[in-house]
Write a protein that binds this DNA or RNA. Structure first.
Lengths: 143, 143
DNA sequence: ATGGTTGCAAACACTTTGCACATGA
DNA sequence: TCATGTGCAAAGTGTTTGCAACCAT
């Protein structure tokens, strides 16, 4: 009963964030939990429809914004003119965006904390977060 | 006559890109030339108005898109839900975005080419470009 | 019971497009 | 001259908001 335990975890997460466990919220949280790419709202809605959970787009935007506000998710942009959302719980990582097929993969092993320290020292700019994305061709698209 | 020489350079740049030298294009190119931050379309239009160059927003969007297509400018996003444009001629650099006052400053001394080589080796992903932005508090906003 | 959530519709911000007119080379 | 560029208005995305009805706690 993997699904059930995931649902249970999601309910706890919502409770911890002082959010009510509604079907749409649970489904979105589960979706983000099992997906390894940041998702846009259109994709989330499509997923909900397929699973017979109807949810207005306004609701979905409100949910992901609320999640982001409460620290459950992170909002990112990949130079597309729209936002994507991913779980905030994931360890610090960045993305490889294939310009041909649109595939997005994570990379986690890039240490830029040294760079941030330099910036704070040299510029007096207190770094709170950063965005680092790479664009190019994934291995399949190079063939 | 600094202005005149800048204008002259801009005209050449446009000619090299096979673009006609219209007043709006020249003005936008000059603006980007003398500005050290990536600019959004609203800001560009405001500047044009102040200088009595009327240009429809559709025209400005067409111009910056054409510039980007021809390699004169780069289109970037700073997690704002809109695009900004800066000269492509600028050397590889990134931005420090102050979350309080919105100020944007450039940083150029961050060597991530080593990182890109690693990615190509480890992931087989051919990196063509990257986006790296830092968000936080600029020195004035920390006081 | 009641405050947080939702659906719906309307509005919003940003960007693109179609077409007739205008203009730079 | 004539391909290229522009203004205008309309439409296209992605996102937010007001308000009444609804539902999880």
């Amino acid at each position: 009963m993997i699904q059930a335990s995931i649902q249970h975890d999601c309910k706890m997460e919502l409770r911890d964030a002082a959010l009510k466990a509604t079907p749409a919220r649970l489904a979105i949280l589960e979706l983000l939990e099992k997906t390894d790419k940041p998702l846009d709202v259109a994709t989330i809605i499509e997923f909900l429809r397929k699973h017979d959970i109807q949810a207005d787009q306004a609701t979905v935007f409100r949910i992901v914004n609320m999640f982001t506000e409460r620290g459950l998710t992170k909002q990112i942009q990949l130079q597309e003119g729209k936002f994507r959302y991913e779980l905030a719980a994931k360890t610090d990582h960045h993305h490889l965006v294939c310009l041909k097929c649109g595939d997005i993969q994570d990379i986690s092993d890039c240490n830029i904390s040294g760079l941030e320290k330099d910036i704070e020292k040299k510029k007096g700019f207190k770094v709170l977060s950063h965005a680092l994305e790479f664009f190019g061709a994934c291995s399949s698209c190079q063939k």
